[in-house]
Each structure stands twice: as structure tokens, then as C-alpha cells.
Lab assay of single mutants.
Amino acid sequence: LIVDEAINEDNSVVSLSQPKMDELQLFRGDTVLLKGKKRREAVCIVLSDDTCSDEKIRMNRVVRNNLRVRLGDVISIQPCP
């Protein structure tokens, strides 16, 4: 998924579009594992966002710094076991 700027300022939340959440079989409030660069990982709570496009994930600056990614970078997402 492509990293995009978050609207809310919550450090533990990322936003996906509802069709993408359905495709990944995620529900609102699920915890997910995000994988960024240099084997960096972060655990976040996923919320749906109608304004977010299907191929993007919204996260704020703190999460991006933790993953060592910038806007427009590609990250992977998976549900936490």
C-alpha cells in the first residue's frame, strides 16, 4: 500500500478504504502489523476512511518515522495473529 498523510493525529491509528479492508478481511479496530523499510515494523489499529483511495494507507508522521518511510513509499500490511 502507498503511504499517505493522515487526517487525524492519533499515533496508533492507520486508515484504509472500506473496499481494501474488505479485501484484506480486516474490521474496524483490528490490530495490524505494518512493515516498512530496513525491517522496521509497527503495530497499529486500522480504521475505515471513505476519503482514502483503495491503494493508499493513511498514517501520521510518528508512525511514518517509526517505519522509516515517507509519503508515497510502499509498505506491506498484515493482520496481527
Results as ranks from 00 to 15, higher is better:
22 D>F: 07
21 M>Y: 02
50 D>I: 09
34 L>F: 01
55 E>Y: 10
33 L>R: 09
72 G>V: 00
56 K>E: 08
52 C>I: 08
11 N>H: 15
12 S>N: 08
42 A>T: 08
4 D>K: 04
4 D>T: 11
63 V>A: 14
3 V>F: 01
55 E>A: 11
67 L>R: 00
80 C>D: 09
15 S>F: 15
78 Q>E: 12
61 R>K: 15
7 I>L: 14
61 R>S: 11
9 E>R: 06
33 L>V: 14
8 N>H: 10
45 I>N: 14
44 C>L: 11
59 M>I: 12
31 T>A: 08
11 N>W: 04
26 L>G: 01
1 L>F: 15
37 K>G: 09
18 Q>P: 08
54 D>Y: 11
2 I>M: 07
45 I>Y: 10
81 P>R: 05
63 V>P: 00
1 L>C: 07
57 I>S: 01
58 R>I: 08
47 L>F: 14
34 L>W: 01
40 R>P: 07
18 Q>I: 08
55 E>W: 06
27 F>S: 15
65 N>E: 11
21 M>G: 00
36 G>K: 03
66 N>F: 04
42 A>W: 09
23 E>L: 06
15 S>H: 10
38 K>H: 09
64 R>P: 00
45 I>E: 14
80 C>Y: 07
41 E>F: 02
21 M>A: 02
78 Q>M: 08
23 E>V: 06
41 E>H: 06
31 T>M: 12
11 N>I: 11
58 R>D: 00
32 V>C: 13
45 I>P: 06
14 V>C: 07
67 L>A: 02
76 S>I: 05
64 R>M: 10
80 C>E: 08
72 G>T: 10
24 L>H: 03
60 N>F: 01
9 E>S: 14
58 R>M: 09
6 A>M: 15
80 C>P: 10
27 F>T: 15
48 S>H: 04
77 I>A: 04
67 L>T: 02
40 R>Q: 10
17 S>N: 15
68 R>E: 14
29 G>S: 07
12 S>P: 06
38 K>P: 13
14 V>T: 01
30 D>W: 04
63 V>E: 05
9 E>D: 14
62 V>A: 10
68 R>V: 07
39 R>P: 08
55 E>I: 15
34 L>V: 10
22 D>L: 12
57 I>F: 00
77 I>K: 00
74 V>P: 13
49 D>V: 03
77 I>M: 08
76 S>Q: 14
64 R>L: 10
47 L>S: 09
34 L>D: 02
53 S>F: 10
25 Q>I: 10
40 R>F: 12
4 D>E: 11
11 N>K: 08
56 K>L: 10
13 V>Q: 07
49 D>F: 00
45 I>M: 06
75 I>L: 06
14 V>Y: 01
33 L>N: 02
20 K>D: 03
64 R>D: 00
79 P>E: 08
22 D>E: 10
12 S>L: 11
19 P>M: 13
5 E>N: 11
34 L>Y: 02
57 I>A: 03
52 C>T: 11
40 R>S: 09
56 K>D: 04
34 L>I: 15
73 D>F: 01
5 E>M: 14
43 V>Q: 15
2 I>D: 01
34 L>C: 15
14 V>S: 01
10 D>G: 08
6 A>S: 13
70 R>A: 14
14 V>N: 01
44 C>P: 00
60 N>A: 12
47 L>G: 13
29 G>W: 04
42 A>K: 14
64 R>I: 09
74 V>I: 07
75 I>K: 00
32 V>A: 05
73 D>Y: 01
7 I>A: 11
44 C>K: 14
29 G>F: 06
13 V>G: 09
23 E>Y: 06
50 D>L: 06
28 R>S: 12
79 P>K: 15
17 S>R: 03
11 N>V: 09
68 R>Q: 07
7 I>C: 11
24 L>Y: 05
27 F>Q: 08
6 A>Y: 03
59 M>F: 03
30 D>M: 10
38 K>A: 13
69 V>H: 00
9 E>V: 06
18 Q>L: 09
75 I>S: 02
56 K>T: 15
25 Q>M: 07
66 N>K: 15
26 L>A: 03
66 N>D: 14
10 D>T: 12
13 V>F: 08
49 D>C: 02
36 G>N: 14
39 R>V: 07
73 D>W: 03
2 I>F: 07
58 R>Q: 05
7 I>P: 09
49 D>Y: 01
24 L>Q: 02
40 R>I: 10
72 G>E: 04
74 V>N: 14
38 K>M: 11
74 V>Q: 14
61 R>H: 06
33 L>K: 10
23 E>T: 10
28 R>A: 15
1 L>S: 04
73 D>T: 04
34 L>E: 00
46 V>G: 03
63 V>L: 12
68 R>C: 07
39 R>I: 08
52 C>N: 03
70 R>P: 03
27 F>L: 13
12 S>A: 14
31 T>H: 10
72 G>K: 03
26 L>D: 01
69 V>K: 02
36 G>L: 01
73 D>E: 07
53 S>I: 05
64 R>Y: 03
65 N>C: 07
51 T>R: 08
11 N>A: 07
59 M>H: 00
21 M>P: 00
79 P>S: 11
23 E>P: 00
29 G>M: 08
71 L>Y: 03
56 K>R: 11
33 L>W: 06
79 P>Q: 15
17 S>C: 03
70 R>H: 06
29 G>D: 05
5 E>D: 12
10 D>K: 12
35 K>F: 04
58 R>C: 04
36 G>M: 04
36 G>S: 11
10 D>M: 09
36 G>Y: 05
12 S>D: 13
39 R>W: 08
48 S>W: 03
23 E>I: 06
81 P>V: 06
36 G>T: 10
28 R>N: 15
3 V>R: 00
43 V>G: 04
79 P>M: 08
41 E>D: 07
65 N>Y: 06
12 S>H: 08
9 E>C: 14
37 K>T: 09
40 R>H: 06
46 V>R: 00
23 E>C: 02
42 A>N: 06
80 C>N: 15
53 S>L: 11
3 V>Q: 01
44 C>S: 10
30 D>V: 05
37 K>C: 05
19 P>W: 11
17 S>W: 01
52 C>Q: 11
63 V>Q: 09
81 P>H: 04
63 V>I: 13
49 D>Q: 04
53 S>H: 07
71 L>P: 08
27 F>W: 07
28 R>W: 06
57 I>L: 05
61 R>Y: 09
76 S>F: 10
55 E>M: 06
42 A>V: 09
38 K>T: 14
27 F>E: 15
50 D>W: 05
49 D>G: 05
4 D>L: 05
24 L>C: 02
51 T>V: 06
18 Q>M: 15
78 Q>D: 15
31 T>E: 14
20 K>L: 13
6 A>V: 06
39 R>F: 12
69 V>M: 10
80 C>A: 14
71 L>W: 06
45 I>L: 11
28 R>P: 12
55 E>L: 12
38 K>G: 13
27 F>P: 04
41 E>Y: 06
54 D>T: 15
51 T>F: 06
8 N>P: 08
10 D>I: 07
5 E>W: 09
74 V>F: 14
65 N>L: 08
10 D>F: 07
15 S>K: 14
51 T>C: 09
15 S>M: 09
30 D>N: 05
14 V>A: 03
12 S>R: 10
24 L>E: 02
78 Q>T: 12
5 E>F: 13
25 Q>P: 00
41 E>R: 06
13 V>L: 08
3 V>D: 02
55 E>Q: 12
20 K>F: 04
20 K>Q: 11
46 V>D: 01
2 I>T: 13
51 T>Q: 05
18 Q>V: 12
27 F>H: 13
22 D>Q: 13
65 N>T: 09
46 V>A: 13
78 Q>P: 04
76 S>G: 11
50 D>Y: 04
67 L>K: 00
66 N>M: 10
42 A>G: 05
21 M>S: 00
5 E>C: 11
4 D>I: 14
58 R>S: 04
46 V>E: 02
71 L>C: 07
8 N>R: 08
40 R>C: 09
80 C>K: 02
42 A>P: 01
24 L>G: 01
67 L>G: 00
68 R>T: 06
29 G>N: 10
44 C>H: 03
4 D>A: 12
74 V>T: 10
35 K>P: 01
51 T>I: 05
65 N>S: 13
25 Q>R: 08
58 R>N: 02
56 K>H: 05
74 V>R: 14
57 I>Q: 01
48 S>Y: 06
79 P>H: 10
3 V>T: 03
4 D>M: 10
